[in-house]
């Protein structure tokens, strides 16, 4: 089976899976700790719009998706309203605009909606480079800024009283998440984005007592899920994102059961 890695699309997918398994769960921690789940949905819709735009204008998909998502993020940050409301408005707007574009430019909906499933074996070197940059950026940001991030997660007022630039960090994290969602859509698709973004974090939450260990365990579980999912996919010829999602949910259930048994025994 390892001989398959000599094939370029599979090798690129393998590298992408390793990089994303480390960085996506780290972004997932930010999504959950900053309560940005609605924003993530808005960004997923932004990807559909970006995909429609790229297809309509025959432009490279990933850069356009990233650009559209950054615009969506900026609008959400700048509109004076709660993030949930702005995110909901952004969702409706991006989907509406995507539909209009598809209609106006005769974009086959099937092509645009391909993004819902992702295409890990069709990544370009540009996609991989962007993914590598995101991974390095996220890791460096976390290492260099850990105490500030913990204080923002803990309480924004307390973080401000400690002199932390809360808005700057928040906006930076939101931009990172926007990039992450754009890449994740390309890699594993909208429907299963949570398999790498959220589920490893939920599993890590069951075994962590500290924010540091939450980040580390999230990445470790993301890595385990991705690698096992990747090779299971190759062996059984299954769709990658669905395989990862099924393994992630199974692992979450197993860990939750073990945790509950432990708690019951302690009582």
């Amino acid at each position: 089976m390892l001989s398959l890695l000599t094939l370029e699309p599979i090798f690129k997918a393998f590298i992408a899976i390793i990089l994303s398994s480390i960085s996506f769960p780290l972004c997932g921690v930010m999504v959950l700790r900053l309560d940005l789940v609605p924003l993530r949905y808005a960004l997923m819709h932004g990807v559909i719009l970006g995909g429609a735009l790229a297809l309509a204008l025959s432009l490279p998909t990933l850069p356009i998706i990233i650009l559209v998502n950054l615009i969506v993020v900026l609008l959400i940050i700048k509109i004076p309203s709660s993030n949930s409301f702005s995110s909901a408005a952004a969702m409706v707007f991006t989907m509406g605009l995507a539909s209009l574009l598809m209609h106006t430019f005769n974009v086959p909906a099937k092509d645009s909606l391909q993004l819902l499933w992702g295409s890990p074996f069709a990544l370009s070197y540009l996609d991989l480079t962007i993914l590598a940059i995101l991974t390095i950026t996220v890791i460096l940001y976390l290492i260099l800024n850990f105490n500030n991030i913990v204080s923002i997660f803990f309480d924004k007022s307390i973080a401000r009283s400690l002199g932390v630039k809360v808005e700057l960090n928040y906006n930076f994290m939101v931009i990172i998440i926007a990039l992450c969602v754009a890449l994740a859509m390309r890699l594993i698709g909208a429907l299963l984005i949570d398999a790498l973004l959220i589920l490893p974090v939920l599993i890590a939450t069951r075994v962590s007592k500290a924010t540091k260990s939450l980040f580390i365990y999230s990445s470790v579980f993301g890595f385990i899920l991705s690698i096992s999912g990747f090779f299971t996919t190759l062996y059984f010829n299954l769709p990658l994102s669905a395989t990862i999602a099924i393994i992630a949910v199974a692992l979450y259930i197993v860990i939750s059961i073990i945790k509950n048994i432990k708690i019951r025994n302690l009582k």
Binding site: V29, L32, R33, N147, V150, S151, F153, F154, D155, S157, I158, A159, S161, L162, T205, S208, K209, A210, T211, K212, S213, L214
Partner: peptide, 24 residues
């Protein structure tokens, strides 16, 4: 300024006591 606010709710995500104390 050190600020201690009233806390009503627990969050499902962990933060260790050591991390809280070392924030500042």
């Amino acid at each position: 300024i050190g600020y201690i606010k009233q806390e009503k709710e627990n969050q499902p995500f962990p933060v260790s006591v050591k991390e809280v104390v070392s924030m500042g």
